[in-house]
Design a binder for these strands. Sequence first.
DNA 1: AAGGTCGGCAACCGCATGTAG
DNA 2: CCTACATGCGGTTGCCGACCT
Length: 314
Amino acid sequence: MGRAPCCDKDNVKRGPWSSEEDAKLKTYMEKYGTGGNWIALPQKIGLNRCGKSCRLRWLNYLRPNLKHGGFTEEEDNIICSLYISIGSRWSIIAAQLPGRTDNDIKNYWNTRLKKKLLGRHKEPHRNRLSISSQDSNGIDDSQNFQNLSITALERLQLHMQIKTLQNPFCLYYNPALMVQNFQFLEENQDIQMQQDYFNLSNLKEDELGNSINGIPSTENISGQSNTNTNTGIQPSLTFIQAELDVGFIPAQNSMVVDEFQCFKEIDSSKLYNPRWLSNEFDVNLASSNSWDSANVLHKPEEMCQNYSTGYSIQ
DNA sequence: AAGGTCGGCAACCGCATGTAG
DNA sequence: CCTACATGCGGTTGCCGACCT
């Protein structure tokens, strides 16, 4: 069964908004709000626009207290940290940045921030293809990799870069390798080995010191002590691992060293610790069905109270 | 100066999700 | 519980100005 269109697309104006249209919408919204129905709104105020278009224009451009452009270093840090932790969930990221819209942040990430962080890197896809081989099912690894979530790969890459930066010793502590090893153990259902592996993971972190990670290793993301064996891997990595449905070939050391060279300008003393980012928070926020994302923007103070400093991206 | 290319950003598209009846 | 509909959201497109040749 097809969905009924929200408006007659052939008969509504599309494209850039005129100042008159903006004025009409802004005046009405400031006076009456949506009245709970965006679809009916354009007709009420004599705009030949789709209701969705009106909503987008209001939320992304006309709404009061919006900031455009000029992202601060602190905002960069927060965006980067959250992207690593939760991926491209722009509305949640926007909720942490008062006055910013999800669209703004998405555009900013895609056009600038991502390039700032990853732009000087070798093409990850090419790296993967260059070490392609066949698995036991005769399926080429390169085919598997093409199925990987791009954002998961980017996040894993960023995660590795930051870890490497924080402590060069973590060249021996390779998240990608950990993912691969753990998947191998899971596939083989070797519980004892999994236990040993996580114990070893904790030991390795303890040996290197907790400061090796910007992300807590001895607490889970809810800020509670670890009580099960599945918390030896940092939360971020766990998130990423969940997205890696197929095998992963770890980066070669030479590539990691290249990354270290590329990112040595990042000030590793300013590391953002997203320990407040619990699953509970995530679910609550994601399920909010607010008409106006400005409502969500009121929450950062509550949710960011445990912010420490962030990545410094120069 | 003219044409081509690129980057930034506003806006659109369509699927996912929530909810009222 | 089911259905229809409104809204939320992330990915994508296309316009436009800046820069390059």
